[in-house]
Design a protein around this nucleic acid. Structure first.
Lengths: 349, 349
DNA sequence: TTGTAAGCGTTATCAT
DNA sequence: ATGATAACGCTTACAA
C-alpha cells in the first residue's frame, strides 16, 4: 500500500468538486449549504461528487467569507476546583447545542493574560469572562471592538451582560443560623476584596451580625480559593488561643476543607469546638467527617445562562445589558453544629 | 456621543494600515510579523500606523493564508468529576504556553458526537481524544485526514500516540493490601468493559486474587463513573445479605463516595463492616468520614503530556507512534481498615 | 528594501 | 436554475 502524500491527504476544495460535477463552485456551495433551490438532477450530480471526494468545506474559508466563527470562548482564572469545571461544563453543553465550539482560556493571574484574552477575542463570536481574570478596562476595550460579552460573578461594567448568584441573603441566613447555635466569635475566611462573590458573602456576614446586635469578632482572614489557602488562613485564625473563633465561615467549600484539616491537626474537634461552613456544596460535602453545612449554587446553570445570553447577543444583536441573578440555597448538615440527620439519601432512584 | 456603527467598529485591515503608512500590504505584514528586514524609517512609519489604527491582524485571514489554526482540541466524554477537569487544566496550561488556543468538546455519548468531533477536527491542528468518546473507526478516519492525534487512557490504535496511566500494578497492590486485612469477599464496582482503565484495574483485581490463591467472590458490579452510579451498584452488592462483600474496590473515588453513602444508609459501618477503596485521590478524599484509601494518578500530567506530544507531532511531523504510561501511587488511609494516622498534614508551608 | 500579485477556500451578488 | 466574479484579510514567492 502506497503511503499517502501530504497533498493526497488534503481535503478537496470546492473547485475540485465543481469540476467533477461539471458545475460552478457557486452551485456546489448552494448544494452543500442546502440553501436556495437547485435542479434535482444537478443536485444529484453534485452530491455524488461531494460523496466521492469526501469533500468537507474548509471552516476557515467559510468563516472568512461569512464573517463568523461559530465559536465562543470562556475565560476563567483557574480551573482547579469543582466550581469552574461545573460552570464550563454547563457552558459547553449549551454552546454545543447551539452549534458553536467552545474555546477555553485560563489566565492564572499571568500578566500575559490580557494579550491572551484579546487574542482569544479574535477567534470567537463572543466571550464569557469570569471574575479574577482581566479588569474592567479590558472589558471596555472588548466592548469597543464590538465583541459580545457576558460577565460572570462580577459587577456589570459598561453595559455588558452578567450572570451572578445571590450571595448576601444566603450568607446572612447562614450566619444567622450559626449565631442561633450560640456562636459569638465567628471568623470569615476568604478575600472580600478579591471577588464580588466573596465581597457579598462578607457583607451578608456583617449584616447578620448587625441584626443580631453582635459586633464581628474579627476582620476577614484573607486567603485564596484553594484548600491550602484555607488551611493556612485557618492556622492564623486558630492560634488566637482562648480567643479563637468558635465558628468559621469559609468563602467556599475548598477553603472549608482546609479549615477542617487544620482544625483536625490542631486537635480541635468539629463541630463541637469549632463549627465550619462552606459555599458551593461540592459533591463530597455530604461525605466529609463533618458533613458540611454550605450554600448550594447552581453552578451548571451559571454556565448555561451565560451561553444563552451570549447566543442572544450574537443572533439578535441586542445591546441593552441584561443582568441575571441566580438563586442559592442554604444546605444545613452538621458541620455547623446541627445534629447529623440519619441520612440524606434514601433508596436509589 | 455618537453611537458607533458596525462599520466603525470593525477592526482595520492590512490595507488601511498600508495606505496610512504609505507602503504596500506586504511591508505591513513584514513589520507586524517582525520577520524579514525592513528599513528602520519604514518600520517606524508602519508601526505608528498600526498603533494609531489599533490594527490587529485577522486570525482567519492569517490562518487561511498560513494554513494552520494555532489551536488544538480535546474531546472528553463528560466533564463532571475532578478527573476530567484536571486533565483539561493540564492540557490548557501547556497548550497556552505553546501559544495555542484550546477547544473543548464533550460528547456525552450522543450520536451526534461523531460529527461534532469530525467538525472540531477542521478547526484545529491536532486533537486529543479521551476514552468513551468516539470509537476506533473515527480515530482511523481522522488519521487518514492527517490530523495529529493523541489518545488518552485508551489503547493505541492505528499508530496514534497515547498517554495512559499504570493501572494493573497499582490495582494489584491495592487488592493485595485489602486481602492482607483478611478480606476474602471483595467486590469490584465499575465497568471493566467500559474503558481501558477500568478494564486494567479489574485485571489487577483478578491478579491479586490469583496470587493469594483466592477465587473472586463476585463478578464486577457494573456501573458508570458518577457517585449516583456507585450508589446504585452498591445497593445491588449489599443486598446479598449474609453473603455480601466485606470490601469494595471502586473504579474511582466518586463511585467510592456513592458506595460509602449507600453503606451509611444501610446502616453498615465503614471500614469495620465494609472496607471501601477508590481511585484518583480527589482532593476531598482525605477529609471523608472514612479517609479514603485510593490510588493517586497524575491527572494534570496526563493533560500536559498529551499537549506536549501533540506539539511534537505538529511541529516535527513525527509519525512513529509514541506511547507513554504515567506512574500511579497507592495512597493508604483508613477506609481500607488501616488505623487512621494522626494527621497527614503538619504545619502550613 | 519594497511592491506586485497570486493564492488560501469559502460566500454572496449579480448577471444570464 | 446556474455561472462569473468580487469580496473576505492575510502570507509569500517573485519582481523590481
Amino acid at each position: 500500500m502506497k503511503a499517502l502524500t501530504r497533498a493526497d491527504r488534503r481535503s478537496p476544495t470546492i473547485y475540485e468538486v465543481a469540476k467533477r460535477a461539471g458545475v460552478s463552485i457557486a452551485t456546489v456551495s448552494r448544494v452543500h449549504r442546502r440553501a436556495e433551490r437547485v435542479a434535482p438532477p444537478t443536485r444529484d450530480r453534485v452530491e455524488r461528487a461531494i460523496e466521492e471526494l469526501a469533500y468537507r468545506p474548509s471552516r476557515l474559508g467559510r468563516s472568512l467569507a461569512h464573517g463568523s466563527h461559530d465559536a465562543i470562548g470562556i475565560v476563567f482564572p483557574d480551573l482547579s476546583g469543582p466550581y469552574y469545571s461545573a460552570v464550563i461544563l454547563g457552558y459547553e453543553e449549551t454552546s454545543a447545542a447551539q452549534g458553536r465550539s467552545v474555546l477555553i482560556l485560563g489566565t492564572h493571574r499571568r500578566p500575559r493574560a490580557v494579550d491572551q484574552v484579546l487574542d482569544l477575542a479574535d477567534r470567537v463570536d463572543g466571550l464569557v469572562l469570569m471574575s479574577q481574570t482581566v479588569d474592567d478596562t479590558v472589558v471596555d476595550e472588548l466592548r469597543r471592538r464590538g465583541v459580545p460579552i457576558v460577565l460572570l460573578a462580577r459587577p456589570p461594567v459598561g453595559g455588558a451582560d452578567s450572570v451572578a448568584t445571590e450571595n448576601r441573603r444566603s450568607a446572612r441566613a447562614l450566619v444567622t443560623h450559626l449565631i442561633g447555635h450560640g456562636h459569638e466569635r465567628l471568623a470569615f475566611v476568604g478575600d472580600p476584596a478579591g471577588s464580588a462573590d466573596v465581597g457579598e458573602r462578607w457583607e451578608g456576614f456583617l449584616a447578620a451580625h448587625r441584626s443580631a446586635g453582635l459586633a464581628p469578632a474579627f476582620g476577614p482572614f484573607t486567603c485564596g480559593f484553594r484548600e491550602e489557602d484555607g488551611r493556612e488562613a485557618a492556622f492564623a485564625a486558630l492560634i488566637a488561643g482562648a480567643h479563637r473563633p468558635t465558628a468559621v465561615v469559609a468563602a467556599n467549600d475548598e477553603i472549608a476543607l482546609g479549615v477542617l484539616g487544620a482544625a483536625r491537626d490542631a486537635g480541635i474537634e468539629t463541630p463541637s469546638e469549632l463549627a465550619v461552613t462552606g459555599w458551593d456544596d461540592i459533591p463530597a460535602a455530604r461525605h466529609l467527617m463533618s458533613p458540611l453545612t454550605t450554600v448550594r449554587q447552581p453552578m451548571l446553570d451559571i454556565g448555561r445562562r451565560a451561553a444563552a445570553l451570549l447566543h442572544e447577543q450574537i443572533t439578535t444583536g441586542r445591546s441593552e445589558p441584561r443582568r441575571e441573578v441566580l438563586p442559592t440555597e442554604l444546605v444545613v448538615r452538621s458541620s455547623c453544629g446541627c445534629i447529623a440527620p440519619k441520612s440524606e439519601g434514601g433508596v436509589p432512584r
